[in-house]
Computed example of a mutant assay.
Amino acid sequence: MIKCIAIDDEPLALKQITSYINKTPYLDLTASFESPIEALTYLQENTVDLVFVDINMPDLNGLDFVKSLKYPPKIIFTTAYSEYALEGFKVDALDYLLKPIDYATFLKAANKAREWFDLKRNTTEEIKSNNDYLFIKSEYKIVRIKLEDVTYIEGMREYVRIHLINEKPIMTLLSMKAMEAQLASKSFMRVHRSYIVNLNKITTIERNRIVFDKVYIPISEQYKEGFNQFIENNFLS
């Protein structure tokens, strides 16, 4: 079951969204609120997986509500104003429902949430590898990746995106910490909180950035010393 709450300052809209939640078998409504302030108080003492929240509310709008959460659950926004859609996705919302909302539309968003949680529950922080290959879970499959084909790895919150030569990137539900630990001894180096690079694929460094084709990867202060040592050890003079 996916534990969720609903927040909407309009009583009729809140009644509708809670009725949709209650008729969806895999959703468990633990509370509902007309006030986002009350919802904040509730979340200080209770943990939920998913929040359905209206954007346009007095006192504290839905976007600011989500931004105020230190460890936000997954979010599905509801609103009567389509211009808020882009802002909603900027805070990593799972979906955006435009009022009036019918049950079919609601169910599509709920299914997206279920797929996300199923993937998270079925994926562990486990990577199988040797000196030549990396085995990871991606889209319910185990994928073998040749390390020599990896150019860089990009962290994207719960996911990482593995960029490959002449192939589409591969997404997997893993942390950068797990990737770094597995690849540190295999010619890979973390150069930024969001990037791990294949040192063997570096051809150009420009203004403290590694250049892969048209992609510029910054080298942060935290990792600069280690990277500069690598360059010094391999520099021909």
Rank of each mutant, 00 (worst) to 15 (best):
M57P: 03
D59G: 06
V66P: 02
K67H: 07
K67T: 05
L69V: 15
K70E: 15
Y71N: 13
Y71R: 04
P72C: 10
I75K: 00
I76E: 00
I76M: 02
I76A: 00
F77Q: 04
T78H: 04
T79S: 09
T79P: 03
T79L: 11
S82C: 12
S82P: 06
E83S: 04
Y84L: 10
E87R: 15
F89D: 05
F89K: 03
K90H: 13
D92V: 00
L94P: 02
Y96C: 05
L97E: 03
L98F: 09
Y103D: 13
T105V: 13
K108Y: 08
K108F: 08
A110Q: 01
N111P: 02
A113K: 01
R114A: 03
L119C: 07
N122M: 07
N122I: 06
T124F: 14
S129H: 11
N131I: 15
D132M: 13
D132F: 05
Y133D: 15
Y133V: 09
L134M: 06
I136V: 12
I136Y: 03
K137N: 09
S138T: 04
S138F: 12
V143M: 10
V143C: 05
K146A: 13
K146T: 09
L147F: 07
L147C: 07
D149V: 05
D149R: 05
T151P: 08
I153C: 04
E154F: 08
E154L: 07
R157P: 02
